[in-house]
Amino acid sequence: MSNPQAWSSLVRFIRQYYATAEGLVPLHAPCFDQREKDLVTNCIDSTFVSSVGQYVTEFEQQVAAFTGAKYAVAVVNGTVGLYLALKVVGVQSNDLVLTQSLTFVATPNAIKMHQADPVFIDVEPETMGLCPAALKAFLTEHSDQRNGRCIHRQTGRVIRACVPMHTLGFPARIDAILDICNQYNIALVEDAAESLGSVYHGRHTGRFGQLGVFSFNGNKIITTGGGGMLITDDAELARHAKHLSTTAKVPHAWLFEHDEPAYNLRMPNLNAALGVAQMQKLPQFIAQKRQLAQHYQHQPGLVMQKEPANTQANYWLNALMCQDQTERDAFLDWTNSQQIQTRPLWTPMHQLPIYAQALRGEMTQTEWLAARVVNLPSSVVNDA
């Protein structure tokens, strides 16, 4: 790929696609029109701008219906959504939680918020998500089953949960991961932050584990400014998550009674109003993103990440594969100098000083991908 003609051709395509002859082409910008403004104005006029109001419930119902989940719980961001999901599946202080190193820092941070520790497992190049074979190998070598719990053999600590991520919207092999978790008595929580609109074997991501968690940050496929959502088919997990997110307040017309230590994590109605408007456009956004992915895949000289068989990716961010880190860095330098915003994947978590001492398996594929992948501009275009 490393030739000036291929790079120049790509930049010309991006500027033509986004009708931006000069100036910055962002990596991923939100797409708003009058509908969002109208609902936000309605919310302001109602005076219900905090965690009580019609739009929070409506947004939850829309996400549940779209994904096929029975229940949805709206929270203030995806990170606390992961924290809350881990809380209700029983993660405790000193537990171990399996996850991938190739992820955004919010994933292990949510684990550390419980005073638990992440254990990093390698990913696979086909999905960029947690590798079932690596997961199985780690558990076979390092764990035992005792009294219905999975115990890390060297430390005696409980391996309580597993948090794979659907990287950039490409579904991980979540059915195989679920089978392993069930075999080892490990709770499964899906980090689906980037994968709203992605489907694995006909089923929406986030619906294989006990819970799935989406993010609605400003750079996601739909946004509420800041926000997250837990989905589940388990009525008790949904009830407990919502209860904890609303300070564990016992329902009453006027008394303030709370029955367990809890949190104030409910999504504000103002943010949810944005979400309701955005959900109406989600099918259009997905279709446009998939079309853009096709355009990128047909650009000369590019090797793009493609959705694996039997999956449908939302192509939240399109992923270009470079030959090596030298080419990656040269491409990043050149495109950003042309005001085309491109970005590498996250620094792998095990390479960050804050997580360098965490337990981990081999990181061969994680490090290979991190050295090569570049994300290209992937915003949707406002047709309004």
Rank of each mutant, 00 (worst) to 15 (best):
P261I: 13
M279D: 03
Q299V: 12
V11Q: 10
I286T: 05
H298P: 06
G148E: 03
S337M: 10
V91K: 02
L82E: 01
G228C: 04
M128P: 02
G226P: 02
K70Y: 08
V49M: 08
G53R: 09
M165A: 15
A72M: 09
S51Q: 07
I151E: 02
E194I: 08
P164S: 08
G228S: 02
L265C: 05
D383L: 15
L244K: 00
G227W: 02
W7I: 15
A238E: 07
Y71C: 13
H295C: 15
A29L: 11
D234C: 13
H258W: 07
S378N: 06
N109C: 11
N318Y: 03
E367W: 03
A370H: 01
F32M: 06
D38S: 12
V374T: 08
L98W: 02
G228Q: 01
H201F: 08
T205V: 15
R146K: 14
I159S: 07
G275D: 09
T335C: 15
G275K: 01
K112T: 15
T347Y: 04
T335N: 05
D234Q: 10
G301D: 05
P308M: 11
A309H: 09
Q297K: 09
N269S: 07
R239K: 14
Q145C: 12
Q351D: 14
V119Y: 01
Y315R: 08
R12F: 08
E307N: 12
D259F: 07
H152I: 14
L211G: 01
A309E: 15
A262W: 03
L352V: 10
